[in-house]
């Protein structure tokens, strides 16, 4: 089978780093990553192409999939950040387009409060079909993944090692569960790469980059989690923080985030409200919605405010059918249409 990427793409991905977009433009002008490699523009990078040839063979034989920046299934939001990874290696299934994604990050040294709420947030998001993105580290990350799986949702773990290397290895069970449940484990690092400490800040930018918003459960003042939160703000993501006791060391970071303007979450359901998703209580009061109606509602929820033509493109069905669905949703009181814009009725 013809691969969509080649050895040179892998080489390029690994070296480009923060200059990826700029270099990719150059490579495109030259005619591809291979031409870029052969052009001798970066002679110091050229030494170890043999490593990539070996990895390439290895990936072909394993169940690791690769997705590149120009592929259709590359996570939409991740494309928007300054330095998206050129290639993503993953196991399982990437989130589809138009799915809602929320990141949860928290300290590895989480308190029981942090762990419980990471689990609860994971669960409630999972129940409402929101993908939960986290880092599969011990503590809060693992709890968030578990909660999401328990809630029947899909979750993605972004690793600081190769996607085939389970880090930490004690999380082997969770690693498999994530893939089995229909989620994925992904990484920008070559398969087989161990979890070097320097990889983690890079990994964190993917977690926030893939998500619409980030929940910070707990963080110390100078910690990887705080760095992730800062990165999320830089990427234009909304940051939600869990308020904690001011005496708790693990809540110092989150409380500071709130002081600096992050939105505090004062209940588990709060996140649904903030993301414009109906909570269970509301859903029960609502009349039953058909599958098509739900799909339309999801799109509107995600966009917040949408006009019918945008909706038509995102929904992809004939206009007359869509008009019907919109009318029914209006009758059921779920949405409002005014001045040509459709919004959720609150």
């Amino acid at each position: 089978m013809k691969q969509k990427y080649d050895v040179y793409d892998m080489w390029f991905s690994d070296h480009a780093g923060r200059r990826v977009m700029e270099l990719w433009e150059t490579a495109k002008d030259l005619g591809g990553t291979r031409a870029f490699y052969e052009s001798d523009m970066m002679p110091s990078w050229k030494r170890n192409i043999g490593t990539y040839e070996k990895s390439y063979e290895k990936i072909n034989k394993s169940d690791i999939k690769v997705c590149s920046l120009w592929d259709g299934d590359y996570p939409e939001l991740l494309k928007e950040i300054y330095d998206p990874p050129f290639l993503l290696y993953y196991k399982g299934k990437l989130p589809e387009k138009m799915t809602r994604i929320c990141g949860i990050v928290g300290s590895r040294k989480a308190t029981s409060y942090g762990k419980r709420l990471a689990y609860d947030f994971g669960k409630i998001l999972g129940e409402h079909e929101v993908w939960v993105i986290s880092g599969m580290a011990l503590g809060a990350d693992s709890c968030a993944h578990k909660g999401c799986i328990d809630g029947g949702g899909l979750t993605a773990a972004v690793l600081g090692s190769g996607a085939d290397v389970c880090t930490p290895s004690s999380n082997r069970k969770l690693y498999e569960e994530i893939i089995e449940s229909g989620g994925c484990v992904l990484s920008e690092f070559l398969p087989g790469t161990p979890g070097y400490a320097s990889n983690y800040p890079k990994r964190n930018r993917i977690i926030s980059g893939m998500s619409e918003n980030i929940i910070v459960t707990e963080a110390d003042e100078k910690s990887g989690t705080s760095v992730t939160a800062g990165m999320a703000l830089e990427q234009g993501r909304e940051v939600f923080a869990l308020p904690g006791n001011i005496t708790s060391v693990m809540s110092r970071g989150t409380n500071r985030l709130i002081k600096e303007g992050a939105t505090p979450l004062i209940s588990v359901e709060d996140i649904l409200w903030e993301m414009g998703i109906y909570d269970e209580h509301r859903k029960n009061k609502m009349p039953e919605l058909s599958e098509a109606e739900l799909k339309v509602l999801r799109i509107i929820e995600k966009k917040g405010e949408i006009c019918i033509y945008e909706l038509q493109i995102l929904y992809g069905k004939s206009s007359s059918e869509l008009y019907g669905i919109v009318t029914v949703l209006e009758i059921k009181g779920v949405i409002l249409k005014n001045n040509g814009k459709i919004i959720i009725a609150k």
Binding site: I308, S320, Y323, G324, T327, V328, N338
Partner: peptide, 14 residues
């Protein structure tokens, strides 16, 4: 049919 009616509702005066 109801689908025609539903579409017609979209063109009503708001």
């Amino acid at each position: 049919k109801s689908v025609h009616l539903a579409e017609a509702f979209q063109f009503r005066r708001r």
